[in-house]
């Protein structure tokens, strides 16, 4: 009960103080919101790219395009040998007609293109899907080397290198995000700490009086810590709100592309949003503790 009363006092004092110097406090909240927004934006981009990579890596395929008109035993022998390969999980034969169907399903706007050309331009192919655990660049290269000169194989295509490049890009995005976000979060800590220090200076008399009538250190500091907590939490909430708004606007454009990527673009999961708001609160508390540590409270 006593702790509850103390907490109620801290929140009441903090809200009064926040409102009293609202412009300066808006500055702290804004700084925190911007830094967490940047961090969150990079996280959103990284998690979307990650999703794509995960989807693609689940099914590493090597596609062998076949010479035109290849039928019967040559093709059967190729399929058989691929099936026997220890790295291959399954093999699927795609005929020229099936390839055309796929194209039409994937690119609706270009549906008439094959008709305009007058004939089906797509070659037949054999798609080999790799076993989980063997989707390494080495395996893919070995498989390609083993089969690219095989009779009936016109051309080989594989997407593992792209996946690897994308993974590197994601690591980069995440790294840059963490770095930028980290720097901005430090700026947030600094701003909150300075704004609270100014408040402490402005209210030094009041704090002295509190100590003289027997207030404990915790009791004197409490309202300031709560002030930082509220500032940081508000900053976090605003940044999540801004992220959501920006996401809604940008995602509309990205949706067309997301058909290709295999699923809709996703926003940050709830736990990451909670983490951002909690992170803001932590930044606020650290900021205010820093300023209290340096002042005479």
């Amino acid at each position: 009960m006593i702790i509850l009363r103390a907490l109620a006092y801290f929140f009441a004092e903090a809200s009064t103080s926040l409102w009293r110097s609202r412009l300066m406090n808006a500055l702290s909240v804004g700084t925190i919101a911007v830094s967490l927004f940047v961090l969150g934006a990079f996280l959103t981009i990284a998690s979307n790219l990650n999703e794509v990579v995960a989807r693609w890596s689940r099914k590493v395929q090597v596609t062998f395009y076949l010479t035109d008109g290849l039928e019967g035993p040559v093709r059967e022998s190729l399929v058989g040998r691929l099936k026997d390969d220890p790295a291959v999980e399954s093999v699927e034969v795609i005929s020229r007609d099936q390839a055309l169907e796929r194209f039409r399903a994937l690119f609706r706007d270009l549906q008439t293109l094959p008709d305009d050309l007058g004939e089906n331009p797509f070659p037949a192919s054999v798609e080999a899907t790799l076993r989980p655990g063997r989707e390494t660049p080495e395996e893919v290269k070995r498989l390609v080397a083993a089969f690219e000169k095989a009779p009936g194989v016109e051309e080989v295509q594989y997407d593992l290198l792209w996946i690897q490049r994308l993974s590197t890009a994601i690591r980069l995005v995440r790294g840059v995000g963490a770095l930028l976000g980290g720097i901005l979060v430090l700026a947030g800590v600094f701003t909150i700490s300075n704004v609270i220090r100014l408040t402490v200076y402005a209210r030094q008399d009041e704090l002295d009086i509190m100590r003289l009538v027997g207030a404990t250190r915790a009791y004197v500091k409490g309202p300031f810590v709560v002030e930082g907590l509220i500032q940081g939490g508000l900053g976090g909430l605003i940044s999540v709100g801004l992220l959501w708004a920006a996401f809604r606007v940008l995602a509309r454009d990205a949706l067309a592309a997301s058909d290709l990527l295999g699923r809709a673009v996703v926003f940050l999961p709830l736990d990451v949003c909670v983490f951002i708001v909690a992170g803001g609160m932590a930044v606020g508390v650290v900021g205010s503790l820093l300023s209290l540590g340096r002042s005479r409270v």
């Binding site: 009960m1 006593i2 009363r5 103390a6 006092y9 509190m210 009538v213 027997g214 207030a215 404990t216 009791y219």
Partner: peptide
């Protein structure tokens, strides 16, 4: 205030 810091109701 003196009572408040003692968390008196």
């Amino acid at each position: 205030f003196v009572l408040r810091i003692l968390s008196v109701p």
